[in-house]
Design a binder for these strands. Structure first.
Length: 204
DNA sequence: GTCCTAACCTATTCAGCGA
DNA sequence: TCGCTGAATAGGTTAGGAC
């Protein structure tokens, strides 16, 4: 992060979580598990987290990235070889039968939702510090806060695609554009109302 | 400067829960 | 049953850190 080059405001380094550095032993365990189960369920991820002494959310991200890398590496040959086995692995639907149970659905109380929505209006892209603060405030893991914001953004975008006018009015009410302007995690200055819907063009 | 990869994003789908 | 929404996925981008 080099955000202090951009401005000298008292913007805290409230951006990404700092990079996790896995040890060789941790990686050995992760890779071993990945080779057996590229789609571990919640229980497996929890167990792994305990075993290598990290958070379950880090395990989840590691598996996501690992699968992506594997797909990328396999792709050139897969196109010509048509290895049916690996194809099945990449298809969530096919894979699903043997997949382990997911994490239990989190049910948010009215006051928890109120807090989350209030924070979302202020800044739909909270940095790690804000997410952790929020998580502490409402008593859920930070990873759940992150997922909640992801889902919230996705659904807002979907809604705006379907009913642009109505959602714009809603936006006016919520004062979202203003709220976004000076917030900590200036998501590249991409206003949420931007039609290019901030995909791909982030600069953090 | 380049490369690897953790962190993070959107888009989409699956699935639990309450009306 | 259906709509809402949390969880998980694929596929992509950004950025930290080792070299």
């Amino acid at each position: 992060m080099a955000e202090d080059t951009a401005s000298h405001k008292t913007v805290t380094t409230n951006h990404r979580r700092s990079r996790t550095k896995f040890t060789e032993d941790q990686l050995k365990i992760l890779i071993n598990t990945f080779n057996q189960k590229p789609y571990p369920g919640y229980a497996t991820k929890q167990k792994l987290a305990l075993e290598i002494n990290t958070e379950e959310s880090r395990i989840q991200i590691w598996f996501q990235n690992r699968r992506a890398r594997q797909r990328f590496q396999k792709r050139p040959e897969a196109d010509t070889l048509e290895s049916s086995q690996s194809h099945g692995q990449d298809q969530p639907g096919v894979e699903f039968q043997s997949r382990e149970a997911r994490r239990c659905r989190t049910t948010y109380s009215t006051s928890q939702l109120h807090t989350l929505i209030k924070a979302f209006v202020k800044n739909p892209y909270p940095g790690i510090d804000s997410r952790e603060e929020l998580a502490k405030e409402i008593g859920v893991p930070e990873s759940r806060v992150q997922i909640w914001f992801q889902n919230r953004r996705s659904r807002l975008l979907l809604q705006r695609k379907r009913e642009p006018v109505a959602s714009l009015e809603q936006e006016e009410q919520d004062k979202i554009p203003q709220g976004l302007q000076g917030t900590e995690d200036t998501q590249n200055g991409t206003s949420f109302s931007n039609d290019s819907h901030f995909s791909g063009a982030r600069t953090w």
